[in-house]
Amino acid sequence: MSNENKEWPLWEVFIRSKAGLDHKHAGSLHAADAQMAIENARDVYTRRMEGISIWVVESKHIHASNPEEAAAFFDPAQDKIYRHPTFYNLPDELKHM
């Protein structure tokens, strides 16, 4: 009854909610192939017009950064506050910049 090992693969679903916006991760689901994953994603994640475009990718193809190394990995950006516009001291009379 449990049908072990015959489970359909897992897919990650990305949805563009409207024209001009990025596809954003919405969730995941099981499907036998990509076509079925897209159709299932429509029924599971866009029942209320939440999307105009769907991407699916098999979960096993996603590679992720390691959360345990996050501190060291993202460290290079930590001390570069000059990358932000607020770092610069400009006179108050300068209105439009």
């Binding site: 049908n3 015959k6 359909w8 036998a32 192939d33 079925m36």
Partner: peptide, 13 residues
């Protein structure tokens, strides 16, 4: 249905 879908996906692959 599950078996048929798996078989179809396999065949297309």
């Amino acid at each position: 249905v599950r078996e048929a879908a798996s078989a179809y996906a396999e065949k297309r692959k």
